[in-house]
Amino acid sequence: MSATNTRSARPSVSRRRLLRRLEPYLLLLPALVIVLAFFAYPVLKAVQLSFMHYVLFEPQNIAYSGFANFKALFADPVMPRILFNSLVWVVATVGLQFVLGFALALALNKKFRGKNGLQAVVFLPWAVSAFLIGMIFKWMFNQQNGLINHLLMGLGLIDRPVAFLAIPHTSIIPVIIAMIWYGVPFFGIMILAALQSVPHEIHEAADIDGAGRVRQLFQITIPYIKPTLVLTVLLRVIWVFNSADLIYIMTGGGPANTSDNLPSYIFNKVGYTTDFGQASALGVLMLVVLTLYTIVFLRITKYREAGEI
């Protein structure tokens, strides 16, 4: 510290000035230490582990193994399926969450009686644990006495109960439905907040000029809130890509890994094989995918401000 050098003439004043200059850093210090310890360190450690043979149950056999973990990943026969699932999972979930969330926000963007109560109810899923959501939907999609089977049979769409969560290759669909349901409120909240920031005068002016509601929506509202929409989608894609809870709870990735996405596959690897090396290699793969995605996304949307929020 330079406190000793500056003490010469008027010690207390200059020391106070130095303290004032350090103030913003000191206030951020706890947060920074935590970010370094809990985000930077794990990422670096994961990179290191991805180049090691590290199985929890073989503590005497831990050593660097070069690219062995990555080679094993690319040789893994279920990988194509898992990558495909990850893509479908993100596109279907975020796409439909966005459309439904937008509809919800538009419907709520007006004062009416009972709005607060209604808003509290439709936003509720956002605050509920994924574990509980997963269990509720697992029960609803259940073959024996499941509500969905009951309704579909009532409508005459199926003759006998279907074990939706046990069908290879399609068992991820019920999970996606649950995930969409879970995430609509988030989009609703974010878009509603953005809609409420659009000044009334713009719409009043457009009304006078005779622009219809649909035209106003596409030519005024959406361009106005585009920055929020872009940021929300960006963050949401990352979040959904990283999300594994519902898959873990509803299907456990099964049958035979056909409903796993990348993170749920990692969790299964960690849990069943305790192969931390391979799990970390998968984690590093996720980080690479996410980084590429973010760069491409920001390029395409030309969203430079994203960094300076």
């Binding site: 985000f39 794990p42 990422v43 994961a46 990283n242 990692i266 984690g283 590093v284 980080l287």
Partner: peptide
Amino acid sequence: LATQMVPVMVMLVP
């Protein structure tokens, strides 16, 4: 902001 990108699965093992 970048911390929001780090997957839980990456942090779990370390």
